[in-house]
Computed example of a mutant assay.
Amino acid sequence: MGEARRRVAVVGAGVIGLAVAAELGRRGATVTTFDPEPPGSGQSFGRVRAFRVAHPTVIGVDLAVRSLALWRRWEEQWQQPLIRSHGLLLADVERHAWAQSMARAGQPFTLPDRAAAAELCPLVAADRLDPAALIFDPQAGAIDTRATIEWLLAISGDYDWRLVPDHVVRVRPQSATGASVLLADGTEQAFDAVVVAAGAGTEALAAGLGLHLDTLPQQRTWAALRPRLPLAQTAMWMQMLPGHRYGWAQLGSDCLVAMSGDWSSNNPSDTSAGSFAAALAYAAELMPVLDPTTARSQEAQVAPVDVPGGWPFAISTTGAVTLIEGNQLFKFAPLLGRMLAAAVEGRDAVG
């Protein structure tokens, strides 16, 4: 008789949860994914995400390069583009640190002046930019989030995988070789291993394991606007604003521009309407070519975690339970799928 398949539960059907489910299925595991919301909801919602190689640390750059190679492999298998690479103009960054990390990692970048910035991203009012804080990442691009979720669901369906629309309220290691999940209806199911990739819900599940995650609950708002006049495809734009606020724009093939901003949900004045208004005010100041009357919005609660040591994410293991924590992880999805699957198998997740 053949060796029995490992039974693995994945908590969360966002892009990371689906990526690890697909990878575990490819490796022969029987996978059950739990999420009360439709796949791609929560922190994975929206139309577009930014992929960038540029990071302020060498390890961040190296991980992004590894992830990009896996994104390209996904595209070859799907036979559709998942990342549309037109470059990314970053503003208000500590340019020396970012440029130094890119140079040490051997990755291309440029340090544009205002004229070059205006040519790269004509959406932005270049006269309002600080030329000493600009860096351009030519390998960056816009991730098509919907196509990515569709792809992961398609390949997961090829394996021994099922999606259960239920809420996991607790995860508990049973031994070094097993763990269980407690569902909202009070039933408990046992598995050989559990992976927690529950986005904003990870903190509560980690607390039940005695782990403290240093999260800052936030509300993320996307405002999609159309340009007043037709524009050719341009580079993406990202501005690192104080207090972990940022704005970015990407002109897609349908001429929609998506922007996002983070506002702390701990502040009573930071409401959904207020954050959307702030996004529109930001667009009016920096991107006057956009038409505010065409604006549409989406928002979601997120809980980013600042990971020490320059890493953009951290993988923790307690018995047979593995958790992923970090911030803005969509771009690392194919790499994290492999790393988390390796952690479940007891192998070095970094290798």
Rank of each mutant, 00 (worst) to 15 (best):
H167P: 03
G199Y: 00
L229Q: 15
V194L: 05
L225G: 01
A223K: 06
G201P: 09
Y159D: 01
V257R: 09
L163Y: 12
D254E: 11
T187H: 02
R172H: 06
A179K: 01
A200E: 09
V169W: 05
W237D: 06
T234K: 05
R162E: 06
L251C: 04
L211D: 07
A193Y: 01
Q233N: 00
L225K: 00
A223I: 15
Q218A: 14
L256V: 10
P227I: 05
A193G: 03
V164I: 08
L251K: 00
G178H: 10
P165H: 04
T202R: 03
V171Y: 05
Q219R: 15
V257I: 11
V195H: 01
A193V: 02
Y159E: 03
L211I: 15
L183R: 05
G252L: 12
A235H: 08
G247A: 12
A207L: 03
G247S: 06
Y159C: 01
T202W: 03
A249S: 07
T202M: 04
G208Y: 07
V196H: 06
L183C: 05
Q218N: 14
V168H: 01
D192R: 01
P242Y: 08
L209M: 08
L256K: 03
V181H: 02
E188M: 06
A190C: 05
G243F: 07
T187P: 03
L209W: 07
M240C: 14
A258F: 08
A207G: 06
A176T: 13
D166T: 01
D192N: 08
G252C: 06
G178L: 12
V196Q: 05
P242V: 11
R172S: 05
R228A: 15
P217D: 06
V181M: 02
L256R: 12
V194S: 09
H212N: 13
D185T: 00
M236Q: 14
T177K: 09
W248C: 11
L211V: 15
A232Q: 11
L241G: 00
V194P: 10
F191G: 10
L231E: 10
R226I: 01
A224T: 15
G208D: 08
Q250W: 13
A206R: 10
D254L: 04
D185V: 08
L225Y: 08
Y246N: 13
R172A: 10
Q174H: 00
V168C: 02
L163N: 02
